[in-house]
């Protein structure tokens, strides 16, 4: 018997699979947006462990 690519199970669960796919895609977009916002909002110059030399007043923060 040849391998059938489209099984009856696939068509039966198509709606469910498409729905999960859309949700996963939405989740990926959300993570991307969150990452973008977090990166642009974070002041990396002040993050601990960075090599940026501090000015006199900042060094006393």
């Amino acid at each position: 018997m040849g391998i059938r690519t489209e099984h009856e199970l696939h068509s039966r669960r198509k709606g469910r699979n498409v729905g999960v796919g859309i949700m996963l895609a939405g989740f990926v977009v959300l993570i991307m947006l969150l990452t973008f916002v977090k990166i642009t909002q974070t002041d990396f110059a002040r993050a601990p462990g960075t090599a940026t030399p501090a000015t006199g007043s900042e060094a006393n923060d």
Partner: peptide
């Protein structure tokens, strides 16, 4: 065989 899955059995939908 995957074809043994009974077609009449209810498949839970996303809803």
């Amino acid at each position: 065989d995957i074809t043994n899955t009974p077609a009449a059995e209810y498949d839970a939908q996303l809803g």
